[in-house]
Amino acid sequence: MNRHQSQRAAYGCLWAAASITIVILAIIIMYVLLQGLPYLSLNFLFGRPEAQGREGGIMPAILGTLALGALSLIIAVPLGVGAAVFLTEYTRPSALTTMMRFGTDSLAGVPSIIFGLFGFIFFVTRLNLSWSLLAGSLTLALMVLPTLIRTAEEAIRAVPVSYREVSYGLGASRWQMVRTVVLPNALPGIVTGIILSFGRAVGETAAVIFTAGTALNIPTSVFSPTRTMAVHFYILAVEGISLPMAYATGAVLIVTILIINVAANLFISRGIARTVRR
């Protein structure tokens, strides 16, 4: 095989790999949607489950998912954005920031089952929160923290240095500068990170099942246990409770993830458009 033939063969393989990846994604999404859509109804979306989810709807799981995602973001977003601001605006590279970065990088690599174990032994058992929305949210907040810090840091770094200089030149203090110049300009990137983190909270199972529990009721306070859509889907599928209901839940789950990803991309392109316009 001469070099021109191998050129052609190799490029053929690369095209094939890219096409295969796109096709696999399409198969996954289409399969779950096509299997699930026939079972979807308003009653399913807004009804309460009966017989452990064999019949009825998934309203408690939808509300549980939203509550868990929202609460974990309420905990994690201030910490994540604060950490990003500190690392970019308030400090010079030092041994300490290297350690902080090491912490963030390592936390990002910790598998969700370890978060599940930790949340179970620490929040559920040691802090006596039992299986609850709060224990689940605290665990999830730690899980999404690295994503938030990284995206916020990237967005903050993309704000031109000259903006900061102008702000300082007008006599702003550091925090005034951050509040009025850096954060507003970094907002699209930060929001992208928040949306993606919400997606991670929605899709998570291993860490949630051992911290928020599997109770199929509408959470009434942060101390009540709950069951997310992903956990509900898992239980329906693995315990063989009802395959049609599993398909339908899976369809709702994947539509949620699709919406979240499209929203995140809208913010990304908006952010880019804004920087280009300037």
Binding site: V32, G203, T205, A230, A237, A246, L253, N265
Partner: peptide, 16 residues
């Protein structure tokens, strides 16, 4: 596409 592959919950992959 890659971003979405990363976003799909692991329970969905397991189900597939």
């Amino acid at each position: 596409v890659i971003q979405l592959l990363a976003g799909i919950p692991s329970v969905i992959y397991g189900f597939i």
